[in-house]
Design a protein around this nucleic acid. Structure first.
Length: 494
RNA sequence: GCCGCCUUCGUCUAGUGGUUAGGACUUCAGAUUCUCAAUCUGGCAACGGGGGUUCAAUUCCCCUAGGCGGUACCA
């Protein structure tokens, strides 16, 4: 049993001290997951605000699930988001240290705290089936727990495949403190004899994580709530080795709209996906940090530096949070609006040249200005402003007539063309164009909408778009006139 | 089934033994505008249920329901 008071005082000490070491320990089974990103973020923030260390450890103990390129994506995504690990030049891979784990397992066996298990996968599967059929809790039945030495020696001589299992003590109660949830307790009778070393010689997560966290002197284990039920297994291992417990911080889960654990089925789950869509890293970070944490007041906009000083473990929430795209989009928009026109222009070009080279050449400062207040991520430049990059088809619907009669529209449009033709390229600027359109309205004795609406529609082909003046600027004289003429031709035909 | 965790507007959340239960997103309406966006103003919208404790419970306790997670030689 753990001495809780000792534990708590230690916890307080560490929370304020400078010896904080956190780690992000993904297994390279895919791209950096958005849930992993938040875990990494919180770990990073805690380490940095205490002048501590943030370590990246690759937990590649399952050969069958290894995905090529995953580690690289994790490293790159973290870098792009500004969460640089302190051991980047000295990454730790569990797969390169298999012997170490095996040695520790041997130690436990010698102390009678673990044992060899020679049960075949077949037997285990059958056992499981029977248990389920009988409505019993599925689990290992302890068949090899009491094997005598002769049998073991014999099996080993025969090279019989085996694993190492932990000898979970019976009828004990395991208690530990989670900083988010307080004291958690579970009876050991509900804990299986966990496999420590698999038959391929690799350690399981449970063994490796305990050994490495201890050896790396990790002070705070920040991870998803899905690990909460296996934490007692880890506590048992710490006790078996005679090591001090770290601080546990189990984060609430990130959820799909239906409140199930965030999954690929209903969401993009890779950080990469959102970066590729052109969300600003700062916006993504800002959105993510608020999913499970808040500063205690009404502020919502934070830079990473601000977060480093503001973040408090005590303000982490208990309940799961839905990954709500609307709010992410709002943050995206906020961050774009905070930028200067030049900053936005450059960032957008940067993104386009990486992900949408075809339209980067048409992305001028006027287009940029129109986009800045209207998008939440860069890929919307292409989807929301298609009329700037592609030919439009304003014949598809008779929207031109929505605000005006055909005659009026025809008359207005023709006058506009006549008028605009006389403006030379040098005077083709927003103020001047606005002036021209306004004076045309007066000259023709029409309402604003009678001129502005058809011009805008002729230029954009869309019911909703930028203003006519903006469009004239974005498209330039030649293209603008061509489009208006095209609309006139169509009107005359119909 | 068993074990564990969670529960305030649709969403992210603040909050207190006595509050008009606050903010943000979404949404709706108005102002502005040719439309959109942006901006400003305003509105709708929540304490899962049942018992206690108490003068008083959203807040404390118990039960229950629901949700989620775990139950692998996956992490």
């Amino acid at each position: 049993m753990i001495d809780l008071s000792k534990f708590i005082s230690r916890l307080k000490r560490i929370g304020q001290g400078s010896g904080v070491v956190t780690r992000f320990a993904p297994s390279p089974t895919g791209m950096l997951h958005i849930g992993g990103l938040r875990t990494a973020l919180y770990s990073y923030l805690l380490a940095k605000q205490n002048n501590g260390k943030f370590i990246l450890r690759i937990e590649d103990t399952d050969q069958s699930r290894f995905v090529a390129g995953a580690t690289e994506d994790i490293i790159n995504s973290l870098a792009e988001l500004g969460l640089q690990p302190d051991n980047l030049n000295n990454l730790y891979y569990q797969s390169k240290n298999i012997e170490k784990y095996q040695n520790y397992a041997e130690k436990l066996i010698k102390q009678d705290k673990a044992y060899y298990c020679f049960c075949s996968a077949d037997r285990l599967a059958k056992l499981r089936e029977e248990q389920i059929a009988k409505k019993q809790a599925p689990g290992y039945d302890g068949h090899c727990r009491t094997l005598d030495q002769k049998t073991i020696d014999n099996y080993q001589k025969l090279n019989k495949p085996h694993v190492v299992r932990f000898k979970t003590p019976r009828q004990e109660e395991i208690k530990f403190i989670d900083i988010v949830r307080g004291e958690i307790s579970i009876k050991t009778d509900n804990i299986d004899d966990q496999v420590l070393i698999k038959s391929d010689g690799f350690p399981t997560y449970h063994l490796a994580v305990v050994i490495d966290d201890h050896q790396m002197k990790i002070t705070h284990i920040i991870r998803g709530e899905e690990w909460l039920p296996s934490t007692p297994k880890h506590v048992l291992l710490y006790q078996a080795f005679g090591w001090d417990l770290p601080n546990y911080v189990h984060l609430p889960l990130l959820l799909n709209k239906d409140r199930s654990k965030l999954s690929k089925r209903s969401n993009d789950v890779a950080a990469h996906d959102y970066l590729q869509k052109g969300y600003l890293p700062a916006a993504l970070i800002n959105f993510m940090v608020l999913l499970g944490w808040n500063p205690g007041d009404d502020r919502e906009l934070f830079t990473l530096d601000q977060l480093i000083s503001e973040f408090k473990l005590e303000r982490i929430n208990k309940s799961g949070a839905i990954f709500y795209l609307d709010k992410l989009n709002w943050f995206g928009q906020q961050y774009f609006q905070k930028m200067t026109a030049v900053e936005f222009y450059q960032a957008a070009r940067n993104w386009l040249s990486k992900f949408d080279e075809k339209i980067v050449h048409q992305f001028n400062k006027n287009v940029s200005a129109a986009c800045q207040t209207r998008i939440s991520h860069f890929s919307e430049i292409k989807t929301e402003f298609s009329h700037l990059f592609n030919d439009i088809d304003c014949q598809s619907k008779d929207l031109v007539f929505k605000k005006s009669t055909k005659e009026l529209t025809l008359q207005g449009l023709s006058e506009v063309v006549k008028d605009l033709q006389n403006i030379n390229e040098n005077s083709w600027n927003a103020d001047n164009l606005q002036l021209h359109l306004a004076s045309l309205v007066r000259k023709l004795n029409l309402g604003n909408g009678d001129v502005f609406w058809p011009v805008r529609y002729a230029l954009s082909g869309k019911e909703k778009s930028e203003t006519p003046v903006e469009l004239l600027m974005e498209l330039g004289k030649e293209k603008s006139l061509a489009r208006i003429n095209k609309a006139i031709t169509y009107l005359k035909k119909s």
